[in-house]
Amino acid sequence: MTAMLLTEERAGLRDVVRRCLERSAGPRPYLSGEAGGRGPHDAELWRLLADEVGVPGLIVAEESGGAGATFADLAVVAGELGRTLAPVPFFSTVALATTALLVQDGEGPAAELLARIARGATATLAWCEDDGSWDLSSPATAAHQDGDRWTLTGRKLLVVDAVTADLLLVAARTEEGPGLFAVEREAAGLVREAASTLDLTRALGTVAFDAAQARPVGLGPGVARRLGTALDLAIVLLAAEQVEAAQARLDDAVAYAKQRVQFGRPIGGFQAIKHTLVDVLLKVEMARSAGHAAADAADDYLADPGERTAHRLAAAASVAKAMCSEAFMHAAEETLHVCGGIGFTWEHDAHLYYRRAKSTELFLGTPDQHRDRLAGHAGLRAGRR
């Protein structure tokens, strides 16, 4: 295992991504559901990140057209995008879809789809159903086989970028157990609808399948286990995003406390404000350590997929999800209080970070659910996501 340090190469990667983000207009013009908005994504920023950093294929193997970077490198990118709430399809395409393909066995459809993503196709993972669970033991969406032809029937909720993705990867039930299928955006029998969301900077939607044509990507008894590992990889990237978004809120609050004057002095000089900000800093730094450990575990798994490394990744991902979710939520709440009245206005970005903090706290399992899961790993009780 190698420690995830901000090496010179990773610092350079961070700086390149940051420069790309500085050339963008930020999330405001792309808020979901806003009248006159430009849509959920900044296409020019995504193109820039693809051209200058190769973000879509960063973790994809070189033989499939990617850069073959480490997962720790990818976590740096996720953190920078989270820091600015960048309106790009990174989480759907890379954190969810790409990881679901990376864990599949063999080089067949998965390798072909990874190559498409590396060339710029967007994708997402359709997983949750009406109960909102991330448990894949018995998905209601059913896959039917007629000769070489497969079709899907059912409905998926909470699908990130459901309306805009070029490709949907769908977890569905087969006679052999859960399977993973690819559905093209033009497929007959596919209906996609945008959902009203708390987080205005990340689009969600509902996807319905009515005998929609699909292509099998992963079949057999090991698919459920591999897809569970894919979710752990996605959690690691979500945790990286949460930590740097929390750091951004802290940085903004510190800057505001230095320039906001009350009773003839900057409010940052008051002990109550100092204690609040230091408490946020401590939570963010502890969460960052958990996120780094999870990124290490992800790289260990990808280098040597197996039961031991998958178990370690699962535990590290749950620790990171619990700690990073709570650190981000705490930072969003406390820095909102430090900013005072202006922080509660629509024009200030504090509420956008608060919305992201609350939505990511719930997405891919709550902190309490991940603590239950850790207890299961320790043999104390049955774990659940």
Rank of each mutant, 00 (worst) to 15 (best):
R356K: 15
A316L: 08
V319K: 12
H351V: 13
A320L: 05
E334I: 06
T335P: 12
G343Y: 07
H348G: 07
A316P: 14
R356S: 08
L336W: 12
M323T: 13
Y353R: 11
T335W: 00
E333Y: 08
L352G: 03
A331R: 04
C324I: 03
M329G: 13
L362Y: 14
G341S: 13
L336R: 13
V319G: 09
K358W: 00
C339G: 15
C324G: 00
A320N: 06
A317S: 11
C324A: 09
L336P: 04
A350K: 00
A317C: 06
T345S: 08
A332I: 02
V319L: 08
H337K: 15
V338E: 15
T335E: 07
F363L: 11
A332R: 06
Y354K: 09
R355S: 01
H330V: 00
A316F: 00
H330G: 02
G343W: 03
K321N: 01
H351T: 12
E333Q: 09
F328I: 03
T360L: 12
D349G: 01
T345H: 03
G340I: 01
H330N: 02
G343V: 08
E333C: 11
K358V: 11
G340Q: 09
F328V: 04
E333W: 02
Y353H: 00
E333M: 09
A357H: 04
A331P: 00
E361I: 02
A327W: 01
V319W: 11
E361P: 00
Y353A: 05
G340V: 06
H348R: 03
M323F: 10
E347D: 02
R355M: 08
E326P: 08
H351P: 07
E347H: 11
H348K: 01
H330S: 11
E347Y: 05
Y353F: 07
F328G: 07
A332H: 06
K321I: 10
F363H: 14
E361M: 07
Y353P: 08
A322V: 14
M329R: 14
F344G: 13
A316M: 01
V338M: 13
F344E: 15
V319R: 15
S318N: 13
G343H: 05
V338A: 10
A317R: 01
C324W: 06
M329D: 13
H348N: 09
F363A: 05
F363I: 11
A350W: 04
G340M: 05
E361R: 12
H330F: 06
L362P: 00
A317V: 11
A320G: 06
A350E: 02
S318I: 11
E347R: 08
E326N: 10
Y354W: 13
W346R: 14
S325Q: 06
H351I: 15
G341D: 07
E326A: 08
A320W: 03
W346T: 08
A316Q: 12
G341Q: 13
A331D: 00
A350T: 12
H330C: 10
D349L: 03
L362I: 06
M329S: 14
L352V: 03
L336C: 09
L352Q: 04
V338P: 14
A327L: 05
T345P: 00
K321C: 04
S318Q: 10
C324H: 09
